[in-house]
Design a binder for these strands. Sequence first.
RNA 1: GGGCGCAUAGCUCAGUUGGUAGAGCACGGCCCUUACAAGGCUGGGGUCGGCAGUUCGAGCCUGUCUGCGCCCACCA
Length: 814
Amino acid sequence: MTDSSFKTVDPTELAKHFESGEAERRWDAVWQSSGLHRWDETKSRAETFVVDTPPPTVSGSLHVGHVFSYTHTDVIVRYQRMRGKNIFYPMGWDDNGLPTERRVQNYFHVRCEPTEPYVADLELLEASSAQKKERPRLVGRKNFIELCHQLTELDEQAYKNLFTRLGLSVDWRQSYETINDRCRKQAQLSFLDLHSKGHAYLSFAPTMWDVDFQTAVAQAEVQDRPKQGHFHHIEFGVEGSDDSFVIATTRPELLPACVGVTAHPSDKRYQHLFGKNAVTPLFGVPVPIFPSELADPEKGSGILMVCTFGDQTDVLWWRSQKLALRQILGKAGRLEPLTFGTEAYPSLEATAANAAYAELVGKNTEQARKAIVELLRAPNGAGKPPLVREPEPVQQAVKYFEKGDRPLEFLSTRQWFARLVDKKAELLAKGNEIHWHPEFMATRFRDWTENLGIDWCLSRQRYFGVPIPVWFALDERGETAWEQPIFPAADQLPVDPMADTPPGFAEAQRGQPGGFVGETDIFDTWFTSSLTPQIGSHWLLDESRHEKLFPADIRPQSHEIIRTWAFYTIAKAMLHENSVPWHNVVISGWILDPDRKKMSKSQGNVITPMHLFDEHGVDAVRYWAASARLGTDTAFDPQVFKIGRRLTTKLFNAAKFVLSHAGQTGDISHELDRAFVQKLRELVERTTKAHDSFQFAQALQDTESFFWTHFTDTFLELAKPRAWQSADGPSHTDAERTSAIAALRLGLSVLLRLFAPVLPYITEEIWSWTFANETGHASVHGAPWPSGAELASVPAPADADSFARAVDVFTAIN
RNA sequence: GGGCGCAUAGCUCAGUUGGUAGAGCACGGCCCUUACAAGGCUGGGGUCGGCAGUUCGAGCCUGUCUGCGCCCACCA
């Protein structure tokens, strides 16, 4: 290092304290205009670090949990940028889901109805409460999407402001909304690709159905909830004999839907019944009795009725035994009208059966259950009630749609599926190619994939979302030819089959014999979300860009959506290109409130972050977030903000001190200074290693501890007398002085850069005082990450322990 | 019913390949020492959830139990 004069800062010119709010706004503006965060599309994939940013749901406001996890990503990104990587860090807005749909409905008091024609200049304002008493206005899908854009634009701006203030080094030019034309086009292209490869198929089959939302749901959206149910012991007859037996069921209202009876093949109590027909009470319907390994002799009475459909096992039995289909529940979850004594509903006593059913028809399952229990209490022909004893309480786990309030039903409906169950081994192999952080999170993916039982149901009977791009031909009688889907050309996308005309047809042929009908269903929102890496890379739209951005380097996300978002994204990348979507998954934990409950909007315990920024400063809040290891749930603790705040203050003061002394610097020749640099080099090596494995919390802790213990509390005090050369102190040579000043500056420069990913504002502020000019790197965030090589130019100390020894002496004196 | 994770000072958490328990906050004491009182120095405080095992030696490895959290499971 050659002698040179450095610009210095006069401490009297600096503010007494670091004004974080003012500095944050100032640097935000600088960063945006400088283009520091921009992806350079001319650079190769190898030079680039690609982030598959989670697009937040746009439906109100962000909370402190977002701040937490998005900070993690930004810390990783800022480190990679300093390592010289070309960063691709986009932001998406997820405005394609149920939350947005609900919000638009309420705000404008509208409902989406795909059959409604498009109104070119529809203008709607926020609905008044008076309007809300009227029926909602029906608007077409295209209008609904426009309203969605209109409403979410405000939210998106607010989100962007918050994320900018948080210091996320996002390239805002790479923003997208999941409902925009390009994303809808890509989702539809994805479907066409899946279909052409044989992965997507149409099926008329029992599917999990939510009776309130009136849509099919996928396995991944289903959760079990404990529920207090009752075992109802009901006596069945046996056709052609006086024999009888008692089944136990929690769903007596499905008795009219009974299509069979089963017990375990080795169950001696019931073996004599196999092959005979049971006769249902009340309805007198003969149904086959068959053995099944799936029946548990220990459960209930060991023999049970099979209904279409009480649960997933019923579906299995119905398929394997080729039983009749008696689907008494309608899509709204109410018992449909039907007549006993017909081919579909045979009965030995049709009159009585119809009389009993008249008590149930039109009721929902809860109501029907009560009603049928009353019917079952009445004595039958033999003078005793079919309900042999009072219902017994039983704890059961019942399947619910995760957003639903009533149990799911299995209904046979027409749905689109993606074939996944036959690809478990390949999916597991892809999961193993990906590095999960923390590693144990891979288990979640493996368990889910291994236990996958149903293909991915892609279709939803909702109105708002990305339409499935299919039409069907109508034959001469006007019947839909389901086996003849008509697909749009790729350049026609995005299409809405309810509004757009298929190739080779005229709009006038819609619904006409010999014409066509449009698919009414839309995609599962995960169908679009599972394409975020491809949305970022413009897959199928710009192949050279795709090659530079796919697969991504990291997918940041939370653990509860491994089975959905991570799983589907892995599945899509595999089905489309036999690739992994990214090389690393980084899982942030949850923020827990002081009661250690997960902070979430639905719990109503969220804390909005903006006032935290004002109160503690953004760097302090980021410090709190970055202190948590990946995958670890973290308590919301304002105490930690204070510690972060103190760190920024200390940095400010220490820097003011180091940089405020004018003078020459020279070679770092003094033994103590060399010993300090040696310690610094070890720190750099450790923190670099930590960051390379996404252990930013460890790097931060290490740096922070070094900063307080070795830098401010000791080295700075030890170097001070030499650097200062006060009039009444001991005299030092120039070499001793310049060595001290050089070492102090080097230490500050290195520590600033080590802190920069976590504390972008204070480090940038200090960097700008002199280092920006000195180094030619205008921003600390564009400066190179400190390396061993950089510090190796300073010779090692003669005695490896001299720093520790000096510290001992220093401490003893004080 | 299965799987995963967590359990260390009053609080929030570190603890890398097994080698005499750590930090910050809080608490007590002493300092307004010329970067910093939004500081500095210093002190007290822990059978590392229980039990058993491997080992010369266990917070760390093995087994088991308890508590909490999460994920999953064919709901009769």
